[in-house]
């Protein structure tokens, strides 16, 4: 199985370009976050009350509100300019995601297999899922000034992937030559990539409920909570299915459907943490902050599973370190 070197080089370039575009998008969004809507608390509260009533997606923040402390004399007022950057940031994110997708497709074609056959590729797939999830969320909730918080971990992961975990395009070893590579790994990437978004949003939820000054620039706790819950609720069954597919694969690859391999164990732990999150929302006294913290713990477990377990604790997952 020869590897198409040219194509895999183009793929690497696209990957790099995608990261670059994400960085730009993040900077734009950062400006939006910092200057886009400096709204005095009282005004915000009033506006929220007004707009929550629409019953549909909450449009709390879509209307420019001038900040009296920040008006300059010439040009469009800075809040407006920052918000325009915010919209450009979304457009850039779409562009970045497209490049990102192209990079993965080219790698897949170059190696004649699915583009998630090692840590580098798996990380890239996962990050793409996270970005797309975020873009879908943005279609329903006008909270693009939060992009910076989602893009930050994505860029960090992609940087780590591209620099530390990078591996040359190559066919996979016999242990991975199975259609379960397509099914299991993709569903896991889908589940864990999606889960990045609610994790980040839950962090913001905690910030919103804190005394930090950024809290003023975040959407209402209610919106954050809803975004986190809805994405988790979609991601969790997908992740569950991914674990089951893994078990089916393990049955035909390792001789046992469940072996308490470190990766299996931590998946189990992550699964329980998310199950606990869903339960927590049904128990009085656990809603709100505790639930958000559990959600964050869930994301932390997933990331721990991806990196620490792969790179430090060797288990049966044979692609680790590769």
């Amino acid at each position: 199985m020869p590897v198409n070197e040219t194509l895999s080089t183009y793929s690497d370039w696209c990957y790099g370009a995608a990261v670059g575009v994400y960085v730009l998008a993040m900077l734009f969004s950062l400006i939006d976050q910092a200057f886009g809507r400096r709204v005095p608390k009282a005004v915000r509260r009033a506006r929220e009350r007004e707009l929550v009533g629409a019953g549909g997606p909450v449009l709390t923040e879509d209307v420019p509100v001038t900040d009296d402390t920040d008006v300059r004399t010439d040009g469009p007022e800075p809040g407006e300019r920052a918000r325009r950057l915010g919209r450009m940031s979304v457009a850039l994110t779409v562009l970045g995601a497209t490049l990102h997708l192209v990079a993965l497709v080219m790698r897949g074609v170059a190696t004649e297999r699915v583009p998630w056959g090692n840590m580098y590729e798996f990380g890239a797939t996962l990050c793409l899922v996270a970005v797309i999830t975020w873009l879908v969320v943005l279609r329903r909730f006008p909270i693009q000034h939060l992009s910076v918080w989602v893009l930050l971990p994505v860029i960090a992961l992609m940087f780590l992937g591209g620099v530390v975990l990078y591996s040359d395009a190559a066919p996979v070893q016999p242990a991975l030559q199975s259609y379960w590579l397509v099914i299991h790994v993709f569903s896991i990437a889908l589940g864990s990539g999606m889960v990045l978004v609610p994790g980040v949003v839950s962090v913001l939820y905690l910030v919103k409920n804190s005394r930090l000054r950024v809290a003023d620039r975040l959407p209402s706790a209610d919106v954050l909570d809803r975004v986190a819950y809805r994405t988790t609720v979609l991601a969790f069954p997908i992740f569950t299915a991914g674990v089951i597919f893994g078990a089916i694969w393990a049955e035909s690859a390792w001789g046992r459907f469940w072996d308490w391999d470190p990766k299996e164990t931590v998946s189990f732990v992550a699964w329980i943490v998310y199950a606990a999150y869903l339960h927590a929302r049904a128990v009085a006294g656990w809603r709100g902050k505790p639930a958000a913290m559990i959600n964050i713990a869930g994301m932390a477990t997933m990331i721990f599973n991806l990196f620490f377990i792969n790179l430090v604790v060797a288990g049966l997952h044979s692609y680790a370190g590769g």
């Binding site: 943490v273 606990a276 339960h279 128990v283």
Partner: peptide, 20 residues
């Protein structure tokens, strides 16, 4: 439900040493 939740957590915690 509260107990079930607690037990779930405990199970997750107890499984961890097996990975580490």
């Amino acid at each position: 439900m509260r107990t079930a939740l607690f037990l779930l957590f405990l199970l997750a915690l107890a499984a961890m040493p097996g990975a580490l």
